[in-house]
Amino acid sequence: MPAHGYEPPGDADDGEHRDDALLTARASEGDEEAFETLVRRHGPLLLRLATRLLGSRSEAEDAVQESFVSAWRRLPEFRENSTFGTWMYRIVTNRCLNMLRARRPVVALDAVSEPAAAEHQVSPARAAEGRAAVEALSKAMVVLSPEQRVCWVLREVDGLPYEAIADMVGISQEAARGRVFRARRQLTEAMVAWR
């Protein structure tokens, strides 16, 4: 377990952690069935994380698949200073970060927020309005840098403390706070413009 004692949201209870530790030990010695159980257990949560980070389910599937394969190769070096769940969470986060960095450069804020407003303001139904807001948000997120996006999603959507975000991404807590702030700053602007 990491020093700050944080476990990813929805992660297993105590008993399951113990079982994970056994399965991880087995898998690191080449037991494929044990690894399969770990993939089945942690896959859904990691897919959700990657989808949030990347904004695309199909890219998320690729990211999580590659992360598990990479974990299988690195398992012999896995040390029990964190749980398997936390370790995978970190691997997936960083793979998504790299995929975001490899995307083409971000577009300007004005280019996404303005058309979104024109398109959706006409909708009278509350539910539709909610959906439109969600859509406007996901469009607005395009302007965030990969680093801002990842830190913001971990904080705002996954609900991680800053300490855990810093640990996941390998930056200082101050840098994590700064990135989340700048992301919020840009997203609130975009949502105000949209409304």
Binding site: V39, L47, R131
Partner: peptide, 24 residues
């Protein structure tokens, strides 16, 4: 709102299959 609209990813079968194909 966005979180409420997220689909549940309960079924990991496709993922498990793809991962284990490579692992094996």
């Amino acid at each position: 709102q966005a979180r409420e609209e997220e689909p549940e990813y309960e079924d990991a079968n496709v993922l498990v299959e793809r991962v284990m194909d490579v692992v094996q």
